[in-house]
C-alpha cells in the first residue's frame, strides 16, 4: 500500500495526524434520484463528513434492514445502474478531488458489469465494499483486486479470531467493524463487546477500524468514536433523505451530520 497511496489512505493519514475520528456517511445512489444524490454528496462534505459511502442498489440486499432496503427499491425504480453511479462519481469529482468515495454493494451487480472495478477506479472511486463477499475470499478470482482501489472488509461480533487475522491480512483502507448482530439500522448496540473486538482487531492490523450499523444518536456516535477510529452512519440518514425527498430540502440532514461530527470530536 505504501507505494500507491489512494485518496482514502491520504485522508486516513491526515485524520490521524490531526488526531481526528472519521465521520463516514452512507446514502443510496439514485434515492430519491441521481441529481439529488450528487447534491447530497457535496452537502455531506460541507457538513463535516470525511468519507462518502455510496450504496449501489440491488434487488436482494440481504444485509440491509427495512429502511435501506426500501431505498434500494426506490433507486431501482429509477433504473439506477452501476454505470450511472460511475458517472455520478465523475461528476462529483469535478468539484471535489479530495473526499474519498467507497462503493458499497452486492457482488452480482459488480459481476454483471464487465470491468466494473477498472471503471470504478477511472471514475474517481477509491474503494469498494462488497457485502456478500467474505473478507478472506480470494477476491482476485472474482476480479475485485485492483491496486488503485482499496478493498474494505467487514468484521462482525461473530467473526472468529483466526478469521479476523486472515481478513486483516487481505484488507486495505480500513476495517469496517459491524457493531451488532443484525441488519443495518437495528438497535442492539453493545459498546463493551464492540470495544473488546476492536481492540483485538487493532492488535492484528495497523489499519484504522471504523464502527458502523445501528448508530443513531450523537451519544451513540460519541461512545463508539471513543473506542474506534471513526464511525459510519447509514440508516438514519437514508430515512431522513426519504422524508425530505418531496421538497428536496436537505438542511435537516446537514444539521444532523454537523451534530454527529461535533459529537465525535468532543
Amino acid at each position: 500500500m505504501e507505494y500507491l497511496l489512494t485518496r482514502l489512505d491520504e485522508k486516513i493519514v491526515s485524520l490521524k495526524n490531526e488526531s481526528k475520528k472519521a465521520l463516514v456517511a452512507y446514502l443510496v445512489a439514485g434515492d430519491p434520484n441521481i441529481n439529488s444524490t450528487l447534491e447530497l454528496m457535496h452537502g455531506f462534505v460541507n457538513s463535516g463528513v470525511d468519507i462518502l459511502e455510496v450504496g449501489v442498489p440491488f434487488t436482494d440486499p440481504i444485509a440491509e434492514g427495512p429502511i435501506i432496503q426500501a431505498a434500494h427499491d426506490r433507486a431501482l425504480k429509477n433504473n439506477t445502474s452501476l454505470n450511472d453511479i460511475f458517472l455520478l462519481v465523475k461528476e462529483f469529482r469535478k468539484k471535489n478531488t479530495e473526499t474519498p468515495i467507497i462503493l458499497m454493494g452486492y457482488m452480482n451487480t459488480f459481476l454483471a458489469n464487465s470491468q466494473a472495478i477498472k471503471k470504478a477506479h477511472l471514475s474517481g472511486t477509491d474503494a469498494v465494499l462488497i457485502v456478500d463477499v467474505p473478507g478472506e475470499s480470494n477476491l482476485e478470482d472474482l476480479g475485485i483486486i485492483n491496486k488503485n482501489l482499496a478493498s474494505i472488509s467487514l468484521i462482525a461480533p461473530t467473526t472468529s479470531e483466526d478469521r479476523i487475522t486472515k481478513i486483516c491480512d487481505r484488507s486495505s483502507g480500513f476495517i469496517y467493524y459491524v457493531t451488532l448482530r443484525g441488519v443495518t439500522g437495528s438497535s442492539h448496540l453493545d459498546i463493551s463487546e464492540a470495544e473488546q473486538s476492536i481492540n483485538f482487531i487493532k492488535s492484528k492490523t495497523s489499519l484504522p477500524v471504523f464502527a458502523g450499523f445501528g448508530i443513531k444518536s450523537p451519544d451513540d456516535a460519541l461512545n463508539l468514536s471513543k473506542i474506534s477510529d471513526g464511525i459510519v452512519i447509514g440508516s438514519s440518514i437514508v430515512q431522513m433523505i426519504h422524508e425530505q425527498s418531496n421538497q428536496k430540502e436537505f438542511k435537516k440532514i446537514y444539521n444532523y451530520l454537523n451534530e454527529m461530527a461535533a459529537a465525535i470530536t468532543r
Binding site: 440481504i62 444485509a63 467474505p134 467487514l154 462482525a156 461473530t158 472468529s160 478469521r163 443484525g182
Partner: peptide, 13 residues
C-alpha cells in the same frame, strides 16, 4: 460457495 454477510460466516462454519 459462501457469499454471505460476515455475521453469518461463523454460523455456517
Amino acid at each position: 460457495g459462501k457469499f454471505v454477510p460476515e455475521t453469518l460466516m461463523h454460523a455456517l462454519k
